[in-house]
């Protein structure tokens, strides 16, 4: 029961539409020989411009749709048991069933958003006629490209991270459960360490107090803490264990295993934070820049009216 990914949505419907659009645009561009050379002001240039602007509108609507999940709520007759023979009209039932099967899901929107966004690279570039300069028009183009490229990373992350995340959690259901387990190991280690020398206790205490999961942007994204006290504790315990008496070894092994297990779990927690950060951070670029791009685009459109 493998589900279709957003790229495969409805048998690559939006890939087909976007490809068709892109190929026809390229062909048209190649065959068209405007008198003044290719530029945004030729009739084909205008066509590309209008098409691109429409696509931008559709792309923006995705952002709206995502945040307003229940944009369409049609009240059906709420049927309760006190009046079970009350019947939903067939027409409405069919309509509801049609909507369920054909109505756009957010996945459909995202599939269209992806392919149309990528098609925009070609369409908008053809619209420029490869004429760039230091002006608001090129600024709009540049912003658009940054937005699209960040979006491409987003698609990569959406397709890649989920599997890694599931594998990383290894059967633990929630992130909080993972943290609780780490906390529990910490407590066990503290109790165990009391029977050993002060330096062992200090190493364990330091690992408990100073180990960080998450933190600033960089730490979240790289999943590492420089000189991680837990990792260090495991290393140091390895050395410290050598100087112990034979009768302490069994107990020490227990402590070592707890710390080693904790290290694995800490690593898992950090990776989980990392995957989530990687799934999200690009949006902090993608969304604000798209607003900047829209502003530049409006400036661009307003500006061209002055050429007339």
């Amino acid at each position: 029961m493998q589900r279709n990914t957003l790229l495969e949505y409805r048998n690559y419907r939006y890939f087909k539409i976007a490809s068709l659009l892109t190929i026809s645009a390229v062909l048209a561009y190649l065959f068209d020989q405007p008198a003044m050379g290719a530029y945004g002001g030729s009739w084909l240039g205008y066509l590309f411009g209008i098409l691109s602007a429409l696509i931008v509108v559709v792309l923006t609507l995705y952002g709206v749709r995502k945040r307003l999940p229940s944009i369409r709520t049609e009240r059906r007759n709420s049927l309760n048991a006190s009046s079970p023979q009350q019947d939903v009209p067939d027409r409405r039932k069919r309509q509801a069933s049609w909507l369920r099967h054909h109505g756009a899901t957010l996945q459909g929107w995202l599939s269209a958003h992806t392919y149309m966004g990528i098609a925009l690279i070609v369409l908008a570039t053809l619209h420029t006629g490869f004429q760039f300069g230091w002006n608001v028009h090129t600024l709009a183009y540049a912003l658009m490209m940054v937005v699209i490229i960040s979006g491409c990373y987003g698609i990569y992350a959406y397709l890649r991270m989920p599997r890694l995340m599931t594998a990383n959690m290894g059967g633990i259901n929630t992130f909080n459960a993972l943290l609780l387990e780490i906390d529990d190991l910490d407590k066990q280690a503290s109790v165990k360490s009391l029977q050993f020398s002060d330096d062992i206790c200090a190493v364990v205490r330091k690992a408990r107090q100073e180990t960080l999961i998450g933190g600033n942007f960089f730490r979240q994204l790289t999943a590492c803490q420089r000189n991680c006290p837990t990792a260090k504790a495991v290393q140091q315990l390895r050395l410290l264990g050598k100087s112990l008496k034979y009768d302490q070894l069994k107990s020490f092994d227990d402590l070592f295993l707890i710390m080693a297990h904790k290290e694995t779990l800490v690593r898992r927690a950090r990776l989980d934070v990392m995957y989530r950060a990687r799934l999200e951070f690009w949006l902090y670029l993608h969304a604000p820049l798209s607003i900047a791009f829209l502003t530049a685009l409006i400036a661009h459109i307003v500006a061209i009216f002055f050429y007339w």
């Binding site: 589900r3 957003l6 995502k66 229940s70 909507l99 957010l106 996945q107 995202l110």
Partner: peptide, 13 residues
């Protein structure tokens, strides 16, 4: 009419 919101609003299906 369009069915459960959770399913409809999953961006990746």
């Amino acid at each position: 009419a369009m069915g459960p919101a959770c399913v409809r609003s999953c961006p990746t299906g």
